[in-house]
Nucleic acid binder design. Structure first.
Lengths: 173, 173
DNA sequence: TTAAAGTTTCAAAAAAAAATGAAAGTTTGT
DNA sequence: ACAAACTTTCATTTTTTTTTGAAACTTTAA
């Protein structure tokens, strides 16, 4: 019984650390990913105090990263009856989580990059081979990124799409 | 004519900067992304000297990031006849580029994370609701990440797959 | 209206990541 | 075997990113 309790805490901690590391490798700050991990595996809504305590972080850090997670739409504030404090929960549906993360990254990073790509691929260039290659390559890149971005957009619709479902089963063999 | 030359250099620089910024938002170091961008739009193989010059970086930095790009399999060394120096080229086929990046990220980051996820979801937990929820949630996450990772793996096969091609056309509307 | 309970902000500090550059190491032609 | 031409390494420095914490702010209940 005691051993099991330790194992749980250990496992939970390992998960939070791993998720944090994975996050930072993908350009999401470690604490933000850790808070998200913690909320994902928490049965009940968690107060800011508890988050600070469990992750050993400052109030300011907790507050800023919780705000960021809420801006991403993957963490929610909850109010408990008769409680002054605020509690937090994570989006626990993984499909929904993926959709929201895709949407935000698209909006914040991919769309602006596309704009620049379009711009730089539009210089006039009936000149050197180097210029022709530049225009050709950036145009291809624009098309490619646009298509990849659209695929992400379409993830939303995907679940309603029997043909896609069938295909994935087929690809999984 | 003079104006056009300026525009080209300007555009090239803008592209390199943008690609660098995008890289760092996705956990790839800025210089590495910039070198890659530079090689992508260069018609001819580029020497290390030229890379250092164009990006205003040190020899050591150039050397280390070129090595990293070659480890990823997206930049190649080339030898020119009668030239002592080494030249570099980028993988310019974008499908190939995507496949290689997916493969590397899967190998370096997703596979290790999966291993930990499996581990932590395997604690025995006929105990509290909290433990049950933890096991349930991490198991779901494991399945989800595994499936997402497999989809990336299958991108390789995808191009040979008429049904998938059809589907994408269908999804694009 | 006040004070208690709580949250947010932001300038400054700390930590982490990336870049430098000089020394060590390679390779090639003679 | 030598030296010239070039590349790599890694301890140190620089830059960037993240974190802290104390002050300012907000909300609620009495």
């Amino acid at each position: 019984m005691y051993i099991c309790l330790m194992e749980f805490k250990e496992a939970k901690n390992k998960f939070v650390q791993t998720w944090g590391a994975l996050g930072s490798q993908w350009g999401i700050n470690k604490t933000m990913a850790q808070i998200h991990a913690l909320l994902m595996v928490s049965h009940e809504p968690v107060s800011m105090e508890d988050i600070m305590e469990e992750l050993q972080i400052s109030r300011g850090n907790a507050s800023m990263n919780l705000r960021a997670l809420m801006d991403w739409g993957i963490v929610y504030k909850e109010y408990k009856a008769g409680e002054r404090r605020e509690f937090f929960t994570a989006e626990k549906d993984l499909d929904e989580l993926a959709v929201k993360i895709s949407r935000e990254r698209s909006k914040r990073e991919i769309k602006p990059a596309l704009k620049i790509l379009k711009e730089v691929s539009s210089i006039q260039s009936d000149n050197t081979a180097a210029e022709k290659h530049f225009v050709n390559q950036t145009t291809k890149l624009y098309d490619f990124v646009l298509q990849a971005d659209n695929v992400l957009d379409k993830i939303t619709e995907y679940k309603d799409n029997w043909l896609a479902q069938l295909l994935v089963k087929f690809m999984k063999k």
